[in-house]
Amino acid sequence: MKCREVREVILTDYVDARLSEDAQKSLERHLAECVGCREFEAQARRVLVAPFRQADRLYPPEAVWDKIHARIVEEEKSRPSSRLAGFWAGLTDRWAFPKPALAAAALVGILAVALTVTLLRQPAQGPDGARLDLEAEAAYVAALLEGAGAAAISDSGENGGFGTAIEEYFL
């Protein structure tokens, strides 16, 4: 191993005790022969290992929890508390669609309803055809009325009150 590689390993895997047994032996052999790397290793232990091991564990003052507690209690109060709000929150949690997808779906729905209404309100044919239909319907209604009048007359007639043409046909 070259000195540069040895020193890189000392700063990471060696100091952190991550070397395999073979790698450790190989590094120690190099240290036994190289004064510069041996001094480097001693300095690394002194500067990078000992001070950290002596460090005390620090504890936060109780005031930190008091402030956290006050903030989360405040947040809990401002949360939606009604059953409906809870139900809605449950639904949105369960089916959490991304907002753009939800907006696109709503737009498609609105367009579909608008198209259906427009088609239903539009006549099947053009204006002339519509007029013809109306005329035909008027003639049919007039014919029915005429038939009904005839039937009313014939109630006392030969066929015993079965006045319509269809009835007459079947009877």
């Binding site: 890189e8 700063l11 990471t12 100091v15 952190d16 300095q43 690394a44 500067v47 990078l48």
Partner: peptide, 9 residues
């Protein structure tokens, strides 16, 4: 880690 420790040294 290596760069940080180099700097500390």
């Amino acid at each position: 880690l290596k760069r940080g420790r180099e700097k500390l040294l």
